[in-house]
Amino acid sequence: MTLISKSITAFGSLLLAHACYSAQEHSALQSFRAATSAALTSTPTAATSLPIDIAIETVVAILVILIGLVLGTSPLRPIQWREWAGKIEREGEDGFKDNKGQVNRDYMGNPFDFIEGRPNFVDIRKQRKEFAEWVKSQGQQQK
């Protein structure tokens, strides 16, 4: 997905650069022609506009770049509370990763977890004891 979007964006940029270069060349040529014709005939020539193909190329290039960028954005986040909450419960960290596979920095899980977990009231002696028992039971299972 990212490779596709990147190559499309690169192709679009190339087109845009080409269009710019053509426009520049065109105007350079026009002014040269105007200067020589003015020197020869001394009658002013009408200012010519860009040829249509350069204009079309510019518009197409911008559209292609846009498509590439849009394809490359990370998936949109839910804006409804219940969808967002459901996503946290259903997908956990998986649902909040960007294109590189890293969990978003502002992902906090359920923001109300602390109400039930109560980290400031933690009974550390009980937790320690339970953990020691768990380790013991694991050791017995392995034997």
Binding site: M108, G109, G117, P119, F131, V135
Partner: peptide, 17 residues
């Protein structure tokens, strides 16, 4: 699991990790 979140409710395996 991430260390940014409070570890109080995690099961023993994850606390060990």
């Amino acid at each position: 699991p991430s260390l940014i979140r409070s570890p109080v409710q995690l099961p023993p395996v994850e606390a060990l990790a």
